[in-house]
């Protein structure tokens, strides 16, 4: 596995990264963890002329909690999120998803922000961030914009990011104190992409459901919000009946391909089952909070 020749830049300042992207446009690719990009280059599926490595740029490797929520820099690795006590306490969907990302080797190098920018429809973080209503912060020489994740994905491996932009941060709103969530993933083995993944997030308002976030992995051209299911849940009294109704709605939102992982019918069945189980678990956690 030998990639085609490419030029390699490793700027020490974000401004220089942005200048390089402005100069090379779609001939350049940004390198963070490289866990998807490098294999694609080695298979010669991708042959960028220039790699712009974020590795030396300061200030991108932090997980910070503010009163508004979490800020996760572009160089924060999956492994750091997996180990985070903060996530376990207040962001259970993320805490559940982190150890299910790929395998330990990939988690040591790969990044959450890079995973979003890569926009693999079978990527796990996309669903988690959709369920949590997160935002992506993008920078270019033209300035900064904050993009809701719900407007971020446009199709398989494509997002609203421009070739001259780099995603530098993800912002996750702080969930209400009585909330819970989880991520369930069916994979054939450790390191496999999801056959189906379900991110569930429930906030309780008195004893009814406040906001519900529900998003699905690997059942469409990109990570999918189960919007109808979220509406079914919002304001409802939580319990098996409404969860089953939401599960049916979520299965309708899924448009999976039939492939070696299973038929479309099978994958919708897994969506149904995992939504039900994921909501039940989320409720448990919210009630315990």
């Amino acid at each position: 596995m030998f990639p085609a020749a490419f030029d390699y830049r490793s700027p020490a300042a974000l401004e220089d990264v942005l200048d390089s992207l402005a100069a090379y446009g779609d001939e350049a690719k940004v390198l963070a963890g490289g866990m998807s990009l490098i294999p694609m280059m080695k298979l010669r599926f991708a042959s960028p002329e220039v790699l712009v490595d974020l590795g030396r740029v300061p200030g991108l490797d932090a997980v910070q909690e503010t009163p508004d929520g979490l800020r996760i820099g572009a160089l924060v690795r999956h492994a750091e999120l997996e180990a985070s006590e903060l996530l376990r306490q207040r962001y259970p969907v993320m805490a559940a998803a982190a150890p299910l990302i790929a395998d330990p080797l990939v988690r040591n190098r790969g990044t959450l922000v890079g995973s979003l920018a890569h926009a693999d429809p079978a990527g796990d973080w996309g669903s988690v961030m959709l369920a949590l209503n997160a935002e992506v912060v993008a920078r270019s020489t033209a300035g900064q914009r904050v993009i809701p994740v719900r407007e971020f994905f446009t199709g398989p491996f494509s997002t609203v990011l421009q070739p001259t932009e780099v995603a530098v941060e993800v912002r996750v709103p702080r969930p209400s104190s009585r909330s819970g969530g989880t991520y369930l993933k069916l994979e054939r083995k450790v390191g496999d992409f999801a056959t189906v993944g379900v991110a569930a997030h429930l906030e309780l308002d008195n004893e009814r459901i406040g906001r519900a976030g529900l998003a699905l992995t690997a059942v469409g051209g990109h990570n999918v919000v189960a919007a109808e299911a979220e509406e079914v849940l919002a304001g409802a009294e939580p319990g098996p009946e409404v969860f089953a109704e939401a599960a049916e709605a979520a299965a309708r939102a899924a448009d999976p391909p039939s492939d070696v992982r299973g038929s479309a019918d099978y994958k919708r069945q897994v969506v149904r089952t995992y939504v039900r189980r994921g909501l039940a678990r989320s409720l448990e956690l919210a009630q315990a909070a």
Partner: peptide, 8 residues
Amino acid sequence: VTSAKVWQ
């Protein structure tokens, strides 16, 4: 024997 075949 995949889970999909078993379900089927």
